[in-house]
Amino acid sequence: MFTDIAMVAHPSVSLFIDLSEGEGLVHHTPGRHRRGSVVVGLLPGELRTGGLAGECLQIRLDPAAATAVLGTATELTGAVVSLADVWGRDAGRAEDRLRAAASWDERFTIARQILGRRLDTCPTVAPEVAFAWRQVRSSRGRTRVDRLADEVGWSRKRLSARFRSQLGITPKRAARLVRFDHAARLLAEGHAAAGVAGESGYVDQAHLHREVKSFTGHTPAAVAVAPWLAIDHVAWFGWPPGRTGPGFGGRALRDVRG
């Protein structure tokens, strides 16, 4: 059985580690496709992932952690790249170890070991940038950039420049992405668009519609019933525990942070 799943923007850098035998995962972006394990940066644009029945491990990295784990977050923004292009031979070694594991719990342990070593040895983002990102996430995208700059003791211009150079996205764009993610979660849970708009900090329902359209190419109504949004378990409400969707089994290790 072949599965084809539309994905949407998420405030994390995602690793899809293909643990399948044979054909495995196929990732489609306009005019191009990639097979196997990939890294999906922030704001990847139109992306569909599918494949024959098999297994994969999805790991979501906080952008600040992604800089250490992957060596960069900036160059991955708006892109979908092969994991081998980022990790070199280590990508194949990681796949082999994870594929040979006897259980998903063992795979999680191995994944944490791999990520932990990289977090301990690779450069990290500036503390001010990491703090600003955490504030954007905790406020669900409703913190003003001027306030963030004041809190870290930088000018707005300096914060925006450093934030973009280290995370690959401006603070303002990051806030929009996080706010959209919160709205997408609520839509997937079945909340009405009008209520979601107010809860998520949008001016009105039309504003929500424009933002959802900008990030996904779809209307809020379409997002609410999409088969998989790559946001959290509510997108798979009704599926048996441990299933990520029809035809392609897997697990997720979410929100790894620096």
Rank of each mutant, 00 (worst) to 15 (best):
A194F: 10
A79N: 12
T74K: 15
L47T: 13
T67G: 11
R32I: 00
A64Q: 03
E95Y: 00
R137W: 02
A174G: 08
E128F: 00
H233N: 05
L43N: 12
M1L: 10
G258I: 14
Q113P: 00
M1E: 10
F163V: 11
L159V: 07
A100P: 03
A53P: 05
E21S: 10
H182C: 04
R156D: 11
S138N: 04
V145S: 08
T124I: 10
T49R: 13
R35I: 00
A206M: 07
I114Y: 03
R164I: 01
G201W: 08
E106Q: 15
T244Q: 11
D4G: 07
G201A: 02
R176D: 15
S214V: 07
P171R: 03
E128V: 08
D204E: 05
F248L: 14
E46Y: 11
D90F: 00
W228S: 13
H10Q: 12
A193Q: 14
G195E: 13
D150K: 10
Q58V: 12
C56M: 13
A193V: 13
L229N: 15
A252Q: 08
E21L: 05
L43Q: 11
R34D: 01
Q135C: 12
G250K: 03
P241V: 10
R142D: 04
A230Y: 03
H10D: 14
G249F: 02
R147G: 05
R140T: 08
A149R: 02
E95R: 14
H28Y: 13
S20H: 01
T124H: 15
R254Q: 09
T72D: 11
H207M: 08
H28E: 15
V223D: 09
G201R: 11
A224P: 10
A235R: 01
G238A: 10
V39I: 11
L115M: 07
L187Y: 01
D96M: 07
E189Y: 02
E128P: 01
F163N: 06
F180I: 08
P171A: 06
Y202M: 05
V129K: 10
T29F: 02
F180L: 06
V13P: 10
A161F: 09
G36I: 04
A102H: 12
L19Q: 00
A79I: 00
A94H: 03
I114W: 12
E55T: 09
F108S: 02
S200R: 06
R93N: 01
D96A: 13
G45N: 08
V225L: 04
V212E: 02
A101K: 04
V178D: 04
A149H: 06
I231G: 00
H27R: 05
A65V: 08
A94W: 15
E46P: 08
L76A: 06
K157F: 03
L159P: 05
D181I: 04
G31S: 02
R48Q: 12
R243Y: 00
T143A: 12
